[in-house]
């Protein structure tokens, strides 16, 4: 299957999800699990408690085995590097939240059995805020929090 613009047009005109579902049924896409619905409610959450509830996970306790690496000061809120590393045995899920962003939840990572609970990305931050990492390990929920001072907000980008 070509990956060019023609394919994009084809997907657009082909009815979006229904076509994706068709391809999945035909075994042309990797996994049905990967097509789980995007959790709108969780991404609409305006604080950590609300977001955890929408994700269906319990309030978290802090853990030193969950390591959140962020800069102390971010000159550019549009590109803030973040790494989450969980040394907790049986970590199945990681989540990343920014308390003072318009929506709290930034990302959720499903750590499948062969994956290592060590992910990194770059995020936007509207203003100086606590960044919260969440790990679900053997049914328990853990968190790590660090403040990032933002010099120039990344909300308008």
């Amino acid at each position: 299957m070509p990956y060019g613009e023609g394919r994009r047009e084809f997907l657009k005109t082909g009815g979006g999800w229904s076509l994706v579902a068709m391809l999945a049924a035909a075994g042309m896409l990797p996994s049905a699990a990967a097509l789980a619905d995007w959790n709108q409610a969780a991404f609409d959450g305006k604080n950590v408690a609300e977001t955890l509830k929408a994700l269906g996970i319990e309030p978290a306790t802090t853990s030193a085995s969950l390591v959140l690496t962020v800069p102390d000061i971010a000159d550019n809120g549009a590109v803030v590097p973040v790494q989450i590393l969980s040394r907790l045995a049986g970590t199945t899920r990681l989540a990343l939240m920014v308390e003072k962003n318009p929506s709290t939840l930034t990302a959720v990572f499903e750590i499948l059995p062969d994956a290592v609970a060590d992910v990194a990305t770059r995020i936007k931050m509207a203003q100086t805020s606590n960044v919260v990492a969440i790990a679900v390990a053997e049914g328990k929920v853990y968190s790590a929090t660090k403040e990032v001072k933002v010099t120039l907000g990344g909300c308008g980008t």
Partner: peptide, 23 residues
């Protein structure tokens, strides 16, 4: 086999960077 899935919101930076590990 699927090794990692993620759900993202709009607060992931433009031209996203994503690093992960698997066995």
């Amino acid at each position: 086999r699927t090794v990692m899935t993620a759900q993202w919101g709009p607060a992931v930076s433009k031209n996203p960077y994503f690093a992960f590990k698997f066995r």
